[in-house]
Amino acid sequence: MQRFLDLFIAGPILFVALSLGAGGPAAAAMMGAPVSLAPLVRAVAPVVVGITVTQAPGTPAKSGPAGGVAEAAGSGFIISRDGMIVTNDHVIAGAARIMVTLNDGEQFPAKLAGADDLTDIAIIKITSPHPLPTAAWGNSANAQVGDWVLAAGNPFALGNSFTLGIISAEGRDIGDGPFDHFLQLDAPINPGNSGGPAFNMAGAVIGINSAIVSPSGGSVGIGFAIPSNSARPIVMALIAHGEIARGWLGISVADPSNGAGQGAQITGVEPGGPAARAGLTAAEIVISVNGQPVAGATALTRAIASMAPGTKVRLGVSDNQHIFDLPVTIDRRPVQLGE
């Protein structure tokens, strides 16, 4: 798995033109493919932006071959006329300077308005002298495997680009975080596409392009997008509050080593954290939260992180096959820490 945030190197780029094969528009129409996406692209292009990031001091410097200058790049899309833009958290994490390039070439500095690393969603804000076009949210629950999808973004920092594919699968968990539930797309997407929108054929955003699986680092037709129905409430909360207050137990966990497959085994306990105060210790296994079975370490992280700090929970705990209930009051999750 690879995030799309990547580095682009100043220098020559070789472009290879590929034939679309025999058949032409008539054959495409017979197969159910759109004859032309030009009207759709014209309609949605103004909401797609390119993002370039200068890393904060202290970030390890990176350069290309022969000392070429490298710069981080990503994508986003406008969701309010006053300049709110959705992107990925990993695109802007650690940024000292964020620049946004609109589809017409206008450039604006941007400020971070909110971010949530667990869902990899961030909001940045630009100030434009004129109202901006906005993307429309689609209902990802209506998306089906086999539906056409138009992926947009800023691959390799070349500028806004569009590719066509289908939804290949739903509900994919790629081990990238506790809230993995991606749409899998086969539309070609590459480094620099992170944070860009995935549109349905009505021009509504049904996903945020976020990750690829590739042995080479480039598109092999396996990309992943955060579904719009998962992203939209996070976006609204970030606009309202700048962050998501998430619950935290103060433990590190792994899937049980006994092969049972259920529960989350505690591998470490944060001194002074909620778990330590409640008496949880390493090697114990959390098997339920408020009576609901825990199906592994990721499931426990997801359950706790979804709760508000200060929530009182009842954990089912197994210690050498002795099962007991333990009340715990969860705390606020520190940035970049575990459960």
Results as ranks from 00 to 15, higher is better:
residue 121 I to F: 14
residue 74 G to M: 10
residue 74 G to V: 09
residue 289 V to M: 10
residue 33 A to M: 06
residue 45 A to W: 03
residue 159 G to T: 03
residue 166 I to Q: 14
residue 202 A to L: 07
residue 72 A to I: 03
residue 297 A to Y: 01
residue 56 A to V: 03
residue 246 R to L: 07
residue 190 N to K: 07
residue 263 G to D: 08
residue 300 L to C: 04
residue 92 I to G: 00
residue 43 A to H: 06
residue 283 A to D: 13
residue 226 I to F: 12
residue 7 L to F: 12
residue 269 V to R: 00
residue 201 M to Y: 12
residue 201 M to L: 14
residue 209 N to V: 03
residue 204 A to T: 05
residue 14 L to T: 08
residue 244 I to G: 01
residue 120 D to N: 14
residue 338 G to F: 09
residue 266 I to R: 01
residue 149 V to E: 11
residue 53 V to W: 14
residue 29 A to T: 09
residue 119 T to Q: 13
residue 126 I to W: 03
residue 106 E to T: 10
residue 309 P to T: 06
residue 286 V to C: 11
residue 124 I to C: 08
residue 334 P to R: 10
residue 85 I to S: 05
residue 229 N to R: 04
residue 274 P to Q: 08
residue 140 S to A: 02
residue 317 V to P: 02
residue 19 S to P: 05
residue 89 D to S: 07
residue 331 D to M: 10
residue 24 G to L: 15
residue 154 N to G: 06
residue 29 A to Q: 14
residue 229 N to H: 07
residue 262 Q to E: 09
residue 307 M to R: 12
residue 20 L to C: 08
residue 282 A to R: 09
residue 176 D to P: 00
residue 50 G to D: 02
residue 205 V to G: 11
residue 163 T to R: 09
residue 183 L to N: 09
residue 6 D to S: 11
residue 330 I to D: 01
residue 80 S to P: 03
residue 110 A to W: 01
residue 237 A to S: 15
residue 71 E to K: 12
residue 169 A to D: 05
residue 184 Q to D: 12
residue 44 V to Q: 10
residue 128 S to P: 12
residue 189 I to V: 12
residue 75 S to I: 04
residue 318 S to P: 00
residue 27 A to G: 05
residue 246 R to K: 10
residue 71 E to M: 09
residue 92 I to S: 00
residue 192 G to Y: 06
residue 311 T to I: 07
residue 35 V to Y: 05
residue 246 R to V: 07
residue 153 G to I: 00
residue 247 G to F: 08
residue 315 L to W: 12
residue 23 G to W: 12
residue 162 F to T: 01
residue 287 I to Y: 00
residue 21 G to C: 08
residue 168 S to V: 07
residue 172 R to A: 11
residue 305 A to S: 15
residue 276 A to T: 06
residue 249 L to P: 02
residue 313 V to K: 13
residue 136 A to F: 05
residue 329 T to N: 00
residue 286 V to K: 04
residue 174 I to T: 01
residue 247 G to I: 05
residue 280 L to Q: 05
residue 312 K to L: 13
residue 7 L to M: 06
residue 294 V to I: 15
residue 174 I to Y: 07
residue 40 L to H: 09
residue 277 R to V: 09
residue 292 Q to A: 08
